[in-house]
């Protein structure tokens, strides 16, 4: 399966990335390539230019700024997995990183790429040949959503493992673009819309993830459910955090974006965590997501897993 033709840029600094990204009309960042290149082989993404982060300075590595932890966007998941400081402070992050794909994908895949990865759907993540059977779906420029049989909508599911962990850690992003750098909460990266799930503007890219020091003052855990112990994307993934009287929970694999479970969190705010209260929270988990049948796994099953994984994760940090 061949990659379509594109131009390759390998800038050395942030400014170079921004200018390469704004050169043509369809430029994309290439980090580890483990998501993007598969999609390009399938011809569901056809950027004209790939802007490689490989030679970009100051975009890789883990450091402290005050009590905040800053992780460069091109830091590999393997580097995160192997960092004992992160493991101590933010177990959910490390657990999520080490649950991504296989060790091969973790050695290649980056934090930025994981967060910005495309959404997934059984009608979308298929080869060009495979997709000839149906009309072009909305996400690749057609009209129809084959999952729900409606026009001009897309329910493809966000399935990255790391985002929910960072959501419960209240992480934010450092983004650089034509208008210079800005910082934004991670949750704002996601549009909640299947066709263009990531909100970055033209020429913008993520340079780093910032985890506030306060996040280290709670306990966290990531619980992934997939059939195999390696390679598989999450069917459902749940991250939880608890500290100073509150509980946070976030999910992947259930909606067009990674989602925070606000009803669940509200229910448990200031509550004593008992079997009964956790169960009450678990029962509210599914309210956070609009699950569509984008995979073979039944919607009802995923809904149930949301609660189950929450309880499992909480049990582990109680």
């Amino acid at each position: 399966m061949h990659l379509p033709i594109f131009t390759h840029r390998q800038p050395a600094d942030f400014a170079g990335v921004v200018s390469a990204l704004t050169e043509g009309s369809g430029a994309k960042v290439l980090a580890g390539g483990t998501d993007l290149l598969v999609n390009m082989k399938h011809r569901i993404e056809m950027p004209e230019t790939l802007v490689s982060l490989k030679k970009v300075a100051d975009i890789r590595g883990i450091s402290l700024e005050g009590d905040a932890t800053v992780i460069g966007a091109a830091t590999t998941l393997k580097e995160i997995r192997q960092n004992s400081e992160l493991e101590r402070k933010f177990p959910a992050l490390v657990q999520a990183a080490m649950s991504v794909g296989s060790y091969r994908h973790q050695a290649m895949g980056t934090l930025g790429g994981n967060l910005c990865q495309n959404t997934r759907c059984r009608f979308f993540n298929q080869s060009w040949q495979w997709r000839q059977v149906r009309s072009l779906c909305y996400k690749v420029g057609g009209e129809d959503c084959h999952v729900i049989g409606r026009k001009h909508t897309c329910f493809s599911t966000y399935s990255g493992d790391v985002a929910p962990a960072l959501l419960v850690l209240d992480a934010s992003l450092r983004i650089t673009g034509p208008d210079g750098p800005r910082e934004a909460p991670l949750s704002t990266l996601y549009s909640g819309e299947g066709r263009t799930p990531v909100t970055l503007g033209r020429g913008e890219f993520v340079t780093a993830v910032v985890i506030p020091g306060a996040a280290a003052r709670g306990k966290s855990r990531y619980e992934k459910f997939s059939l195999r112990g390696s390679i598989d994307f999450p069917i459902v993934g749940a991250a939880v955090w608890r500290g100073d009287g509150s509980v946070r929970a976030a999910y992947t694999g259930v909606d067009r974006a990674p989602v925070r479970a606000s009803e669940l969190e509200a229910e448990l705010a200031g509550q004593e965590l008992t079997d009964a209260s956790l169960k009450r929270g678990a029962n509210l988990a599914h309210k956070a997501a609009k699950i569509a049948p984008t995979s073979v796994h039944p919607v009802s099953f995923k809904r149930e897993l949301m609660g189950v994984l929450f309880v499992k994760a909480m049990r582990d940090i109680s």
């Binding site: 580890g32 483990t34 490989k54 091969r104 290649m108």
Partner: peptide, 13 residues
Amino acid sequence: GEAVLACLTLAVE
């Protein structure tokens, strides 16, 4: 030193 997938690595990289 890293074991990587050659099918998802660009030769130029």
